[in-house]
Design a protein around this nucleic acid. Structure first.
Lengths: 151, 151
DNA sequence: GGCAGAAGCGTGCGGTGCGCACGCTAATCT
DNA sequence: AGATTAGCGTGCGCACCGCACGCTTCTGCC
């Protein structure tokens, strides 16, 4: 690949990864839902939805957080009624973090809200363009420099 | 736009914005350079390179941080010799944050390193594909939901 | 079968980053 | 010239993070 191309991608990615971009995204995401879901708790909730019931340690490995950090974020989600702790039936030590019905509803609503925000933002794009971009982005996420390591 | 497209984009974006992705990116970025440039100080350094000499308050507006936070991050960059504080010649109150020669060299090396990491990660892509993706990504950053607000 | 080590969990603790509030200096306005 | 505004640095309280500790439960070995 020519050097300038990697440069262009890095530049655009840099903007996308700016903290403020994240913050704006999460503002869309939280608004209207309970305060329990924020920038910190969302990855836990989302990861749990993706993987199914998991221990704090495993979920931590999944989302790249320390075990204890997951525990504390899960505490909040639990007191908000979105997550429930269950005894692991086969291992008496382990506690499985599980989404409640409300947790499932919340994460679904969140994703829908997020999708809607992106659609609004891309209102000037044609449907075909948006689909093309979505495919490229997916391919980059799957095959790009950040893909291999499961985190 | 069809609902499912916004959904796909949101999904891929979510992965891209994961904290661990950022961390991995910044690991590439810092490695080999002094410890002064990290996930926290990089946006300040980078913003300064993009805009030229700026006061802490203006730079804060530029990168979406509180004035005082910029000041403290700049402190570190200053003691590492990458940033220099200069009296604003036309406003005695203002202090302009300026990149030193070493600061310029560091940011250039950082960007090159980043571009190289992305090229490595996309080794399996053709040059044409990479360029096409770069163009789409740039267009999304410029025209997409996160574009309008200068941060 | 019992005991030692490993694995899992929650919590206390120190370190660190953030933004607000305060006080100071310099510019601007009347 | 006096008053108000703008800019800056720093003290302070708050929140988050990961490590270390102690507890319980499982596992492997004699």
């Amino acid at each position: 690949m020519a050097n300038t191309t990697g440069y262009d991608i890095a530049d655009a990615l840099g903007l996308l990864l700016r903290r403020s971009t994240r913050a704006r995204l999460y503002a869309h995401l939280t608004e209207g839902l309970g305060k329990a879901v924020d920038e910190l708790t969302y990855p836990v909730l989302s990861g749990l939805a993706r993987t199914g019931p998991l221990s704090a340690a495993e979920l931590g490995r999944e989302v790249g957080l320390d075990r204890t950090t997951v525990t504390r974020r899960a505490d909040r989600l639990e007191s908000a009624g979105l997550v429930q702790r269950r005894q692991d039936p086969v291992d008496g030590r382990a506690t499985l973090l599980t989404l409640t019905r409300q947790g499932h509803e919340t994460i679904a609503a969140t994703r829908q809200r997020l999708a809607a925000a992106i659609e609004d933002g891309l209102a000037s794009w044609s449907e075909a363009d948006a689909q093309t971009f979505a495919r490229w982005l997916r391919r980059f996420v799957d095959e790009g420099p950040f893909a291999p390591q499961r985190d």
